[in-house]
Amino acid sequence: MPRYQVPRYSPSPKHEVELPARRLYTFRTFLQDRLPYIITFYMALFFAMLVLTLDLQHGRSLPSISSLLYTALLATVIILGWIAWDYARQRLYYRQVAEMIAADKPTALSIMRVRDGATREQLAVQQLLEKQHKAFADELADYRRQREQHLHFTNQWVHHMKTPVSVIDLLLQQAAEQQDAENDNQAIRSSMQEELERIYRGLEMMLHTARLDQFRMDVRIDRVSLLPLVRETINRHKKACIRSSIFPRVEGQDVLVETDAKWLSFLLGQFITNAIKYSKDKPGSKTLRFTVSSLPDGGCSLSLTDEGIGIAEHDLPRVFDPFFTGENGRLVEESTGMGLYLAREVCSRLGHDLAIESELGVGTTITIYFYNSAVHQGLFV
Rank of each mutant, 00 (worst) to 15 (best):
G339T: 06
V332F: 14
L331D: 10
T336W: 06
D321A: 14
I311N: 06
L316H: 01
N328W: 11
G339I: 12
S335E: 08
G329F: 01
D315K: 05
G308W: 11
V319E: 04
T336E: 15
E313P: 05
S303Y: 05
I309P: 06
F320S: 07
L304G: 06
L304V: 15
F324L: 00
I309L: 13
G326F: 01
G337T: 01
E313W: 07
S335N: 11
E313L: 09
I309W: 14
R318T: 09
F320M: 10
E334G: 10
R330H: 07
G329T: 01
H314W: 04
H314F: 07
G326M: 01
P322V: 00
G310C: 10
E327F: 05
L302H: 10
F324C: 00
E327T: 05
G329H: 03
P322M: 01
L304W: 09
G310F: 13
R318H: 08
G326L: 00
G326H: 03
V332G: 11
F323M: 04
E327W: 04
H314V: 07
T305D: 05
T305A: 14
V332I: 15
L316A: 03
E313F: 08
F323A: 12
T325K: 06
G308E: 14
P322E: 01
I309G: 09
P317I: 00
F323G: 01
M338R: 13
F324G: 02
F324Q: 03
S303C: 08
R318V: 02
P322Y: 01
T336D: 15
R318S: 10
P322W: 00
N328Y: 08
V332D: 14
H314C: 05
T325D: 00
G326Q: 04
E333Y: 11
L302F: 12
E334S: 14
I309A: 15
F320Y: 12
G326S: 02
P317H: 05
H314S: 09
E313Y: 05
D315L: 00
T325Y: 01
G339D: 15
D306L: 05
G339F: 10
L304N: 06
L302Y: 14
T305L: 15
R330G: 06
I311W: 08
E334Y: 10
S335K: 08
E334T: 06
L304A: 10
E307T: 09
I311Q: 07
E307N: 09
N328V: 02
L304I: 14
F323L: 07
V319Q: 00
E307W: 09
P317G: 04
D321W: 11
I311G: 03
E327H: 02
F320R: 10
F320W: 11
N328A: 04
L331I: 14
E307G: 13
M338T: 10
A312H: 05
T336I: 13
S335T: 08
D306S: 06
L331E: 13
V332P: 11
L316N: 00
G339C: 12
P317W: 07
V319M: 03
E307L: 11
L316D: 03
A312K: 08
T305Q: 14
T336Q: 13
G326N: 02
T305K: 15
L302S: 12
F324T: 02
S303N: 11
D321E: 13
N328T: 04
M338F: 11
S303R: 15
S303Q: 15
L331H: 14
